[in-house]
Amino acid sequence: NLRWTSEAKTKLKNIPFFARSQAKARIEQLARQAEQDIVTPELVEQARLEFG
């Protein structure tokens, strides 16, 4: 299971509600691909840039 830093959680809250669950799934996918067990603000930002 993935842990989220408080900064990453804050960044996730800045994503519009309607896109948040999809973004969260993508962020967690990116973390797993990078073999990380902690979601960082950088991963959230990477996903945000993908979504535009």
Results as ranks from 00 to 15, higher is better:
residue 1 N to L: 12
residue 1 N to H: 13
residue 1 N to E: 12
residue 2 L to G: 02
residue 3 R to Y: 12
residue 3 R to E: 08
residue 3 R to A: 08
residue 3 R to S: 08
residue 3 R to K: 12
residue 4 W to P: 00
residue 4 W to E: 00
residue 4 W to N: 00
residue 5 T to V: 03
residue 5 T to L: 05
residue 5 T to A: 05
residue 5 T to K: 03
residue 5 T to G: 03
residue 6 S to M: 11
residue 6 S to F: 11
residue 6 S to T: 11
residue 6 S to G: 06
residue 7 E to G: 11
residue 7 E to L: 09
residue 7 E to K: 10
residue 8 A to D: 00
residue 8 A to I: 00
residue 8 A to K: 01
residue 8 A to T: 01
residue 8 A to L: 01
residue 8 A to S: 04
residue 8 A to V: 01
residue 8 A to Y: 01
residue 9 K to D: 05
residue 9 K to H: 08
residue 9 K to R: 11
residue 9 K to E: 12
residue 10 T to F: 11
residue 10 T to A: 14
residue 11 K to W: 10
residue 11 K to N: 06
residue 11 K to G: 07
residue 12 L to I: 05
residue 13 K to E: 12
residue 13 K to F: 12
residue 13 K to Y: 13
residue 13 K to C: 14
residue 13 K to P: 01
residue 13 K to V: 05
residue 14 N to G: 09
residue 14 N to K: 14
residue 14 N to R: 12
residue 15 I to Y: 08
residue 15 I to S: 02
residue 15 I to E: 02
residue 15 I to N: 02
residue 16 P to A: 05
residue 17 F to C: 12
residue 17 F to G: 10
residue 17 F to L: 13
residue 17 F to W: 14
residue 18 F to H: 13
residue 18 F to A: 08
residue 19 A to W: 15
residue 20 R to L: 05
residue 20 R to D: 02
residue 21 S to C: 13
residue 21 S to N: 10
residue 21 S to K: 14
residue 22 Q to F: 12
residue 22 Q to H: 09
residue 23 A to G: 02
residue 23 A to T: 07
residue 23 A to W: 12
residue 24 K to C: 06
residue 24 K to I: 15
residue 24 K to L: 11
residue 25 A to D: 07
residue 25 A to P: 02
residue 26 R to T: 04
residue 26 R to D: 04
residue 26 R to Q: 06
residue 26 R to H: 09
residue 26 R to K: 07
residue 27 I to Q: 00
residue 27 I to H: 01
residue 27 I to T: 06
residue 28 E to F: 02
residue 28 E to Q: 04
residue 30 L to C: 03
residue 30 L to V: 04
residue 30 L to E: 02
residue 30 L to N: 02
residue 30 L to F: 09
residue 30 L to A: 04
residue 31 A to T: 06
residue 31 A to L: 03
residue 31 A to P: 00
residue 32 R to P: 00
residue 32 R to Q: 06
residue 33 Q to L: 13
residue 33 Q to N: 10
residue 33 Q to C: 08
residue 33 Q to F: 08
residue 34 A to L: 15
residue 34 A to F: 13
residue 35 E to S: 13
residue 35 E to H: 15
residue 35 E to P: 05
residue 35 E to W: 08
residue 35 E to D: 12
residue 36 Q to D: 04
residue 36 Q to W: 08
residue 36 Q to A: 10
residue 36 Q to P: 01
residue 36 Q to I: 14
residue 36 Q to N: 06
residue 36 Q to G: 04
residue 37 D to P: 08
residue 37 D to C: 08
residue 37 D to E: 11
residue 37 D to I: 11
residue 37 D to L: 12
residue 37 D to A: 10
residue 38 I to E: 07
residue 38 I to K: 05
residue 38 I to A: 05
residue 38 I to T: 10
residue 39 V to H: 00
residue 39 V to E: 00
residue 39 V to P: 01
residue 40 T to Y: 06
residue 40 T to C: 03
residue 40 T to A: 02
residue 41 P to T: 09
residue 41 P to G: 13
residue 41 P to H: 07
residue 42 E to L: 06
residue 42 E to F: 06
residue 42 E to H: 05
residue 43 L to G: 01
residue 43 L to R: 02
residue 43 L to A: 02
residue 43 L to E: 01
residue 43 L to T: 04
residue 43 L to F: 10
residue 44 V to M: 06
residue 45 E to C: 06
residue 45 E to W: 06
residue 46 Q to A: 09
residue 46 Q to Y: 09
residue 47 A to H: 08
residue 47 A to F: 15
residue 48 R to V: 14
residue 49 L to H: 08
residue 49 L to A: 10
residue 49 L to D: 06
residue 50 E to S: 09
residue 50 E to R: 07
residue 51 F to Q: 06
residue 51 F to K: 05
residue 51 F to Y: 11
residue 52 G to I: 15
residue 52 G to A: 14
residue 52 G to D: 11
